[in-house]
Amino acid sequence: MQRIVTFVLLLSLLATVALAADLPKLRVGYIPEPAHGLYFVARDKGYFKEEGVDVELFQFGSAAEGMAALKAEKLDVGTFGTTAPLLFISKGSDFTFIGGIMIGGQAIITRPERLAELSGHDLKVYKGKKIGLVKLSTGDVVFKGALKRAGIDYKKEVTFVEFGSAAAVVEAVKKGAVDAGLVWPPHFSLAEKNQGLKVAHYIEEFYPKYTCCRIVAPTAKVNADKETYRRFLAALIRAYKFYKTNENETVAIYTKSLKIDEEIIRNETYVKKVAESNPDPLRKGILEFWQHILDAGYVPNDYPIDKHINIDIYKQALDSVIKKSPKDKTYQEMLAFYKKNN
């Protein structure tokens, strides 16, 4: 009897392995930011496999390296910010935005003694100030977009000082070389924890639901195998529901996968909610972001970016998930969000 049980178990194990081996594969690149954690939830909870896609995750130390890997076809999917894919596309690279992984997340830090001066919910407090930033980072582009929306001529009324990295921005704020600095997760949390700096504002306060890291893939691959990309996005949609409804386990998965302090992850993700892990493509947000880049004069020529955004695959993925759980509140909210932002 024992032999039969062992044999059956072995057979089922082999069948599982064979099934995984038969699944279409996607090589997915990401950068180590807490809000990119949906990938790990989808992997650890088995959603990728359940949806019928075999995903291998690759961490990159810089967006430029990640985009180069995507261009060299060493990856099938990548999430490397919004600027990087836009720059590549505007130079002729044929990538398509198919989804997102992060919304929001940018913060303005300052020294504790400057906090009162920068308080309140009016961007006018930044008039006449010197702001450190990393050129073309999400914070740079979106903050300038927020200033423009608020009617502030940032080219004349604010001084921007550009640095090569978020760490250099933090250092400049600490030294007093700038009045405030724009950084992203987990840099502002680390700056608060390790350097004694303070967050003056999250840009979300002035510019709700702005786009951050987008999911892009080579257009030819997307067009050749839409079904695999739909499965991939369906798994992320289910991971989003898990993240919205299972705080402790999500924090544990993010912490284990990203090796970032658990307290920082919990704080950014669930306490202050400075960034949201969300797979929606946010088409309108991408187009606004591109316009902000043009307005800032970073790129001389417009480009038909909209031709490189595919919202249909995400919609099909969302529909397929909703079909299985038609009354699920989270999925219905995602559908409403999709309709509003695409």
Partner: peptide
């Protein structure tokens, strides 16, 4: 980092921004 000429060149360049904490790069 305080070199004015380098800052001027950096301001003109169109580079993909650095994203990640250096100590979090596993590769």
């Amino acid at each position: 980092p305080d070199d004015k000429l380098l800052q001027e060149l950096s301001a003109r360049a169109v580079c993909v921004p650095d994203c990640c904490p250096k100590n979090k790069n596993p590769k």
